[in-house]
C-alpha cells in the first residue's frame, strides 16, 4: 500500500472572473478579486481522495505555496477529503516572482521530507498556464512522470496512467514513486460543502518557509509586460453582393 500522496494546490483568480490588466502593464489586478482553487488542482485532489477511499493510499497531504490566503485553498482541499495540509509561506516580492521552478523545488523537497510515493498535480494553472510544475518536479526528484492523465490505476508498486496526447490516448506503466499531472477528464471533482469546510477546520495545516526546506527562491524569469488580448474588430454590414465582393477585394481576401 502506498503510504502517502502529495497533492499540490494553487490559489488562482476564479475561472468565472473577467481578468483585468493593471494600467502599468506589470501584471493583472488581484486585489478584491474572487479567488478559488485552480480547477485542475481540484481534479488532482479528487483523484488522491478517491485513491484513499479505495484504501490504496494511507494519507493525502495538500500543499500550497503563497501568502496567508492560500490557507483557504488548502482548507478547500481538506474539505474535499485530504488529511492534512502544508502551507509554505511565500509572500511579498518572492510571491510575485514565484514560478514553476521555485514551486517544483519546494514540492521536491517536501516529497523527500514527507516520504511521499506519489505526487498528483494539476496539469497547469489557469492563471499563468505554465504547464511545467509537474514535469520539473519529476526531473528534480528523478522520478518518472505521467502527465495529462485521464486515468490512473495503481497496480502494486507500479502505476498505470492513460495520457491524453494529440489525436488519442497513450497508456504507460511507471514505477513508483511517480509524479502524475491531472487532465480535465480524469474525474469529476466533488464540491467542498459547508459542513465539510467546517469539519476541515479541525484538520491540521503545518506552516513552513522555503528556507526551512533549503529552497532558493530567486527567479531567473523577468516579466517584461502584460497585455490584454487584442480586441476583436467590429464588422461591417454590406447591402448587396456587389458590395460584399468589393469589400472583400478591398480587404485582399479574393
Amino acid at each position: 500500500m502506498t503510504a502517502r500522496v502529495l497533492v499540490g494546490v494553487k490559489r488562482v483568480i476564479d475561472y468565472a472572473v473577467k481578468i483585468r490588466v493593471k494600467p502599468d502593464n506589470t501584471g493583472v489586478v488581484t486585489d478584491g478579486v474572487k479567488h478559488s482553487m485552480n480547477p485542475f488542482c481540484e481534479i488532482a485532489v479528487e483523484e488522491a481522495v478517491r485513491l484513499k477511499e479505495k484504501k490504496l493510499v494511507q494519507e493525502v497531504v495538500a500543499v500550497s505555496c503563497g501568502p496567508q490566503q492560500v490557507q483557504e485553498t488548502i482548507r478547500t482541499a481538506l474539505a474535499m477529503g485530504a488529511d492534512r495540509g502544508i502551507h509554505v509561506e511565500v509572500s511579498g516580492k518572492d510571491y510575485d516572482s514565484l514560478g514553476p521552478l521555485q514551486v517544483s523545488k519546494i514540492l521536491a523537497a517536501l516529497a523527500k521530507k514527507e516520504e511521499a510515493s506519489l505526487i498528483i498535480l494539476g496539469k497547469q494553472a489557469i492563471d499563468d498556464d505554465c504547464n511545467q510544475t509537474g514535469q520539473m518536479t519529476a526531473a528534480l526528484l528523478d522520478w518518472p512522470q505521467g502527465t495529462f492523465a485521464s486515468e490512473l490505476v495503481i497496480e502494486g508498486d507500479k502505476v498505470k496512467v492513460v495520457r491524453e496526447i494529440d489525436g488519442g490516448l497513450e497508456t504507460i506503466k511507471l514505477n513508483m514513486p511517480v509524479v502524475v499531472t491531472a487532465d480535465l477528464r480524469l474525474n469529476t471533482p466533488r464540491y467542498a460543502t459547508l459542513p465539510n469546510i467546517m469539519k476541515a477546520k479541525k484538520k491540521k495545516i503545518a506552516n513552513m518557509k522555503p528556507g526551512d526546506l533549503g529552497v532558493d527562491m530567486t527567479s531567473r524569469v523577468e516579466v517584461l509586460r502584460v497585455d490584454e488580448p487584442p480586441q476583436r474588430q467590429a464588422g461591417v454590414k454590406v447591402e448587396s453582393v456587389e458590395d460584399l465582393v468589393s469589400k472583400l477585394k478591398e480587404a485582399g481576401r479574393i
Partner: peptide, 10 residues
C-alpha cells in the same frame, strides 16, 4: 457548478 466549470475549461 461542475458543468459550468467543466464547459469553461473545455
Amino acid at each position: 457548478y461542475f458543468l459550468r466549470k467543466y464547459r469553461a475549461m473545455k
